[in-house]
Amino acid sequence: MLEDEILKWKFKGGSSEALARIYEKYVDTLLTLAMGLLNDPYEAEDVVQDVFTRFARSGNGFTLRGSLKAYLTTAVVNGVRDRVRRDKRRPARSDQDVSLASASRGPDEELVFAEDAARLSSALMELPHEQRETLMLKLKSNMKFREIAKIQGVSINTVQGRYRYGLQKLRAQLNGEVEQ
């Protein structure tokens, strides 16, 4: 990714334009990932905001040999885990909660949810967090099993199992909804 290498170099040199371009390039994907893991637009937005603020602060001492996208994705995953850990008793919000939350933001703040995405988001929340995380990282962030295994600190076999079981449960959830 030549563009990312240029961006990393310029960002390290203090270029605010590089930071803005990194934001522009990855924010939607990161927001979707956070939304998939949290099913809460406010929380998802907060996580993404934290990630970019911390990333911006790292500028002077920033060294990254790997992928910028993987770095930011991992930061979102960790940010979500922190929130889940901190707020473990918080029940998952329903579709209605999400739509009300979005509507209260006014037209220029409203996050866009397709109907499928809203159903999917709710169904994902029925899965254990590890399975949800695996599915989102594999399918949305396009990560390899070994990369996910590294993030989760488990074996590749465990990740593959989480992916398989997660997909089966999700399928059952969504089929159940269709049949209702």
Partner: peptide, 8 residues
């Protein structure tokens, strides 16, 4: 699936 950010 792709959530878009708002201008705000």
């Amino acid at each position: 699936w792709n959530n878009k950010t708002s201008e705000r």
